[in-house]
Design a protein around this nucleic acid. Structure first.
Lengths: 209, 209
DNA sequence: GTCTATAACAGGATAGAC
DNA sequence: GTCTATCCTGTTATAGAC
């Protein structure tokens, strides 16, 4: 039906759309093929098996997430700027692909052994973040906390509202639009929850303006 | 193989175990029957269809969660006690059933229309919490924040580390035991993240001791 | 109430024509 | 590279014996 060598990436992009955006976490090859407007057999032609297609998406999703994580937290900037950027990027990204974390977690549960992901233990990044965190603590802008808990707090506050979108929407009675506004508000809230002081007006902060 | 009228609840409890504890979110009727040691046909005898069994578990899971939520936040106590109890109960409960939130969220994504859950908007509970929150804010023990964001902060900090267990374990390199210790530590960390002051020693706080 | 047997079907995968 | 046809397996569901 659709010609040419872009078919492979068409299938991959469609599969992402179906799994990550639509949230059809059990999507069959038929559903993916239909959505892409290609024949089901082509999925096997390009990806050998459904399992292999899923594994490919899974690895790419993790690689992308890892890159964002390391790029932002590894950049040469004050901790406050890093955190503000982290919040901004992760919330915006998750808004576009609301179910990607559900997918990743589901896959990791499904095959607990094959999981690779990445580990920041004993890395240079960890040492540098630790120094920056200690500095903020001694300045009094952050309450005493271990680096691990600090990072988990940050991830929790950013990711949970996306992950649990349907729960939040019903508990707090939010429309689709209300939810979107809520997520944007959250950027400031998360920052204020983590830091004792607020960002000053006029600083070059990408998230708060 | 196993006699008697408790078979219905045996199937239900086993299905919970398989779905919530083992994390086999796609579990087939065969797997559930095997685990329970009963014949597969009995699942249909008692629950008509697989879909119907899942729906039953889903509704009960939500009802249980709602009850806990309302009981704890609705009790007659200072806000700090409510929050400490909330943290304690939710983390301990989630430790026993690590995948229940994945299940709930997955089901809600799967059928966005049928979702009931519950809504605290315009409830008496909401008004009372709002008063307590305002009080804490004026006392200076909590930074200015809306009730919705306050509750989402609380849920995020409690639930994300459970929901994203496999991610946290790999990123921060935690063993199974390390993860358990980490969750217990978190009870204090979450409380300190939400309240400006710490709990005094000697108060009758169920979570911090 | 519990079991066996079997129907009915969906999904993944492959072979082979074009 | 793309399609049709087909195979095969696993899964749900039901009928009917006990």
């Amino acid at each position: 039906m659709i010609s040419s060598p872009q078919t492979e990436s068409l299938i991959k992009e469609t599969a992402k759309k179906v799994l990550f955006q639509k949230g059809l976490l059990y999507a069959t090859t038929q559903e993916i093929a239909d959505e892409a407007g290609v024949n089901r057999a082509l999925i096997h032609y390009y990806f050998r098996s459904r399992e292999h297609l899923i594994a490919t998406l899974f690895e790419e999703a993790i690689a992308e997430r890892k890159a964002r994580f390391l790029n932002i937290l590894g950049m040469d900037a004050p901790l406050q700027t890093k955190i503000a950027t982290f919040i901004d990027v992760f919330i915006d990204r998750a808004t576009q692909n609301p179910h990607i974390d559900n997918f990743i977690i589901g896959e990791m549960i499904r095959r607990p052994n094959e999981v690779k992901f990445f580990c920041i233990k004993d890395s240079k990044l960890k040492e540098r973040l630790q120094l920056q965190l200690d500095e903020e603590i001694s300045k009094g802008t952050i309450k005493p906390i271990s680096l691990t808990h600090f990072l988990v707090n940050l991830s929790s506050l950013c990711n949970y509202p996306i992950l649990a979108k349907p729960i939040l929407q019903t508990i707090h009675g939010m429309s689709e639009l209300g939810y979107k506004k809520f997520l944007q508000e959250r950027k400031k809230v998360i920052f204020k929850t983590i830091f004792k002081n607020n960002f000053q007006n006029g600083t070059s902060d990408p998230a708060i303006h």
